[in-house]
Design a protein around this nucleic acid. Structure first.
Length: 263
DNA sequence: ATGGCCAATATGATTGGA
């Protein structure tokens, strides 16, 4: 079972790249972020033609998450618990059935939080508290569970080419990293870091200032695994070559391979 | 010269991203 996450920065602008990458990487489940469209505008047909079931939680103009799955969805639930007044489409949870039982997957788009301090940073921290509460509940189920998405968090200095340039940024502030560790310490495993200690594993390069040709990147897209998923961890990686394609997203896909058979 | 963007919006300037 291959599960991937990709912030596409507009699904409608990225369909050619998405189709090319799906053909190349052949993921079973894909978590998408920043689709930037309402549910009705999501281009489902070409994806369904490839055998993917499609779940969408979109909104107009900004944000928006989706899930593609070769396995049918037994359940799907949009929105993160803890604030019924939160109208931003940043969270989608699904349940699928595998040969060995259920598999729970979340596609999330954690708030950026800049500028910090400020209202946006407060929203980010509160959103993280809600994510921690949610994860605590789900981990009690003792299921294979993959929490995937754009976290807008640089976990450590090894995850950024130029740490000095990010010291006051909401993605890299100590308070952000501390809360991320609180999440991890519930019992989740960062799939990429479980496979490799290499510095220079980045998932985002800004469009500006020649960040890509200078390899001025950061690692902010993560797949966090429950213990039951970590037991089955085979491999994880980042498809950085996708950043050099025409009309790229500023993020590239990150994937994990788990020893779970579809059916 | 010296890599200074990209996407959406009833658009031609503004907002948000990170």
């Amino acid at each position: 079972m291959r599960i991937a996450t990709w912030n596409v920065n507009s699904i409608r602008q990225r369909m050619d790249s998405l189709l090319a990458w799906l053909a190349e990487r052949k993921p079973d489940i894909v978590c998408l972020q920043e689709i930037k469209c309402v549910d009705e505008a999501f281009p489902r047909e070409p994806l369904e033609a490839l055998g993917y079931n499609v779940a969408v939680h979109g909104q107009k103009t900004f944000n928006g998450v989706a899930l593609l799955s070769k396995l049918p969805f037994d359940e799907m639930a949009p929105g993160l618990m803890g604030d019924d007044g939160d109208a931003q489409a940043r969270f989608l949870e699904v349940l699928v059935s595998t040969k060995t039982g259920v598999l729970r997957v979340v596609s999330l788009y954690l708030p950026n939080g800049n500028p910090a301090p400020g209202e946006k940073y407060d929203y980010k921290l509160k959103w993280m508290d809600r994510l921690i509460a949610f994860s605590h509940e789900r981990l009690n189920l003792e299921e294979p569970f993959v929490l995937a998405g754009d976290y807008n968090i640089i976990p450590a200095a090894a995850d950024v080419r130029r740490p000095d340039a990010w010291t006051k940024d909401a993605l890299f502030l100590p308070q952000t990293q501390e809360k991320f560790r609180t999440l991890i310490n519930l019992g989740l495993t960062d799939a990429v870091r479980a496979i490799s200690d290499d510095p220079g594993l980045y998932s985002f390069w800004d469009y500006q200032a020649g960040s890509w040709p200078k390899n001025d990147g950061i690692r902010i897209d993560h797949l966090l695994l429950s213990p039951q998923a970590t037991d089955r961890l085979i491999d994880a990686g980042i498809d950085r070559h996708v950043r050099s394609w025409d009309k790229p997203s500023d993020h590239v896909p990150v994937y994990v391979d788990l020893a779970i058979e579809a059916r």
